[in-house]
Design a binder for these strands. Sequence first.
DNA 1: CGGAAGGTACGATGCATGTCAAACTTTGAT
DNA 2: ATCAAAGTTTGACATGCATCGTACCTTCCG
Lengths: 112, 112
Amino acid sequence: MAAPRRSGRERVPPHPDIQTISLQQVLEALVDPVRRRIVSELYAARQDLACGTIELPVSKSTATHHFHVLREAGLIRQYYLGTSRMNALRRDEFDEAFPGLLSALVAVRDRG
Amino acid sequence: MAAPRRSGRERVPPHPDIQTISLQQVLEALVDPVRRRIVSELYAARQDLACGTIELPVSKSTATHHFHVLREAGLIRQYYLGTSRMNALRRDEFDEAFPGLLSALVAVRDRG
DNA sequence: CGGAAGGTACGATGCATGTCAAACTTTGAT
DNA sequence: ATCAAAGTTTGACATGCATCGTACCTTCCG
C-alpha cells in the first residue's frame, strides 16, 4: 500500500499541507498573471490538465517554474501520467483554508 | 460645488475610477504585507485614519509610497485634514468591482 | 513671523524573481 | 535500441520594487 519507492530524486514531488501555507505565499503565487491563468484554466476545466495542454506565453522551463510555485503554495497537486505531468486544482482543500478567495479571484473578468 | 482649485500641484490627489482597475493591479497592491496591514487596519477601524496613526515597520517615505500604491489600486481614498493625510477604505466601491475579494482577504488569520 | 508636525519628492541601492537556453531524464512508441 | 515527447534542472541575466536618507513643502500654533 505504500507508495512505490525509487532511489534518488523522487518523481512524485512533495505537496505541502495547506494549513501550513500563509496568505503571503498564496498572494505571491497568484500575483503572477501566468500562474493566475493556470489556475483559471484548471478551475474552468473542472478536471486535471497536463502542463502541455495549458497554453502559456513562456518557455517550457519557465512554465515548470510557475507550476512549481503553484504547488508550493498549495494551489495545485501534481502527478505523472506517462511522460505528462498532470495538474489538479486543490479546490476544496484550498477553499477550506482560504474561504471565498479562489472564487472571488476567478470571478473577476480580468481587464489585464 | 466644485472642489476648490489650486495652482500648481494639486494637494488633493487623483483617485482612479475603480472600473478601470485590473485585478493585476489589485493583487500587486495587496501582495505587500505592509500594504495589507494598512488595509486590515482600515477595515477593522471602520473609520478613516491618518497615515501617522497606522503603525508601520517602515520609514515615513516608504509609508508614503505604500499609501500611494493603495490609492492607485483603488483601495483607499486620501484627503487632507490639516497637516494630516486621512485614508478611507473604498470598501463598497471596491466590493462592487471585486466582489468578495476584500472580505476573503481580511478574513484570513494570517500565519505570516 | 518663527518653528514644529505631518507628509511628499527624489535619487540611490540591494534583493527578489520572472525569464530563457542548453543539457539532461524519464517514459512511451517504432 | 532508438528516437521522440514532455518536463526538469541549472545557471545566467534583467528588470522591478521595497527600502532608506535627505531635502522640501503645507499647515497649524504660539
